[in-house]
């Protein structure tokens, strides 16, 4: 009989303790994944988006970067070009050909 009473008292004690503290969840509330806000795609919002470089087309051979030749040392700069040159005759007397454009 004593055991039953002690058991009931303990059960009641646990019940009171747990019920007085229960229900809160013990966590920060916002746990879900809410995606991105609706303005993410708006053009002016794009500044907030990372720049994504699309991967190269696997069927396309990317040209390799090559070293450009150094200009000759004695090449005159733009300031040395004469500004009062007569316009050159570029067609040099070639006949006009209608190419259908």
């Amino acid at each position: 009989m004593k055991k039953i009473i002690v058991t009931l008292l303990l059960a009641g004690f646990f019940g009171v303790i747990l019920s007085s503290c229960g229900g809160g969840g013990g966590r920060t509330y916002y746990q879900g994944h809410y995606g991105y806000n609706g303005w993410y795609g708006y053009p002016r919002y794009i500044d907030r988006r990372p720049i994504v470089v699309p991967p190269p087309d696997p069927g396309f051979d990317r040209p390799e970067a090559v070293q450009l030749p150094e200009p000759p040392i004695d090449m005159p700069g733009p300031e040395a070009m004469p500004m009062d040159m007569e316009p050159m005759d570029m067609d040099m007397g070639m006949p006009e050909v209608d190419i259908g454009l």
Binding site: V6, L10, F13, F14, I17, L18, S20, C21, G22, G24, G25, G26, R27, Y29
Partner: peptide, 25 residues
């Protein structure tokens, strides 16, 4: 044994209360 159990239960309960208090906004 009963006293030890009750004390342990109380400690458990208080610990629970502290953690729950942390969830109060």
């Amino acid at each position: 044994a009963s006293i030890v159990i009750i004390l342990a239960a109380g400690a458990f309960g208080l610990t629970g209360c502290v953690s729950e208090k942390a969830a109060r906004l």
